[in-house]
């Protein structure tokens, strides 16, 4: 059973672990802490029945005076044995809603390699990113 919920400080190491296992862009824990403490309500995790983090989305928002806020997805991944369950889609849905509701985000952006067909399809088809 998977629970989708807001990330907490005690999830950050597990998110880092998940990121290291899934993606080539890796960060030190201090960056996770920095994002969490700067924007505590826009990052989410998926937790399995044993309480392990099996997926996460790490996001942040930038606002410049006089301009629209922009939401950024810094990193998103789901461990292999839990893929194609709609977890990424749900995580992104929550993050996106939090950014729109809380920060009037007009635009959210992310970087995906076009060669990454899973991520590409996810963003384009399911979440209507351009």
């Amino acid at each position: 059973m998977i629970t989708i919920r807001k990330a907490m400080a005690s999830d950050l190491m597990a998110m880092q672990h998940c990121n290291l296992s899934n993606l080539a862009e890796n960060y030190q824990l201090s960056l996770y802490l920095y994002f969490y403490s700067g924007w505590p309500d826009v990052s989410f995790v998926a937790e399995n029945a044993q309480g392990q983090v099996v997926g996460y989305v790490l996001s942040y928002v930038k606002k410049e005076e006089g301009k629209d806020s922009v939401g950024y997805i810094c990193s998103l991944s789901v461990i292999r044995s839990y893929r194609r369950l709609g977890i990424a889609q749900r995580l992104m849905g929550q993050a996106h809603a939090a950014m729109v509701e809380g920060y009037d985000v007009e635009l959210s952006t992310l970087n995906v390699r076009v060669s990454n067909s899973a991520a590409f399809n996810l963003y384009k088809n399911t979440l209507a990113y351009e």
Binding site: M8, A9, L12, P40
Partner: peptide, 9 residues
């Protein structure tokens, strides 16, 4: 609030 959470962790 997040800071308290960090301390606890």
């Amino acid at each position: 609030r997040a800071y308290n959470d960090i301390l606890k962790w």
